[in-house]
Amino acid sequence: MEKSSSRMIEITVISGEDLRVNRRQLVKKNAFVIVQTGSSRTTKMDKDGGSYPIWNEKLVMELPMHARFINVEVQCKALSGGNKLIGTARIPVSDFSGGHLPENYLNFLSYRLRDRNGERNGIINLSVKVIGPENKSRVASCPRPRTEVPVDNKVSGGIVVGIPVPYSY
């Protein structure tokens, strides 16, 4: 893919609220999130969070230029072994990009999740920042560019080697 056809975004999946397996049964554990932009990334499971899981996981993803939505799915691992869909949220790209906001603005966003039948099911909290129109290999090699190179302590602390020059009085 060419550079101009996509850009990188940084999505931090923060937490979920009031997640339910069905109307009466709360999610007990092992909730995780799948984020789809064109490609797909999955967070770790929150083994202890129950219906209020916290992931605080940062994903760097490629967003096609023509994309208008990001899909976010919350699932949990069922006792029977498979994965159960808890809810889905559709995030318009215009919510964090375009308009008068600066391109690298850190957006904190929350969305209502809808289950498979379209019923309301909890809230997903995340933050999104557009990193910029860079190609994937550059971002992958250096996800957080450094502003300066740290000084090597060994060099600055070393003894300067000099050649003694004899005095001529």
Binding site: S15, D18, I54, S110, L126, S127
Partner: peptide, 24 residues
């Protein structure tokens, strides 16, 4: 640390995204 109410519904209104961010 944050309080994560297990049986409180989202009506509580005090669990917004940034609140979690802070408290943690």
């Amino acid at each position: 640390s944050h309080q994560r109410p297990q049986n409180v519904r989202s009506d509580a209104g005090h669990n917004d995204a940034v609140d979690h961010f802070f408290r943690t």
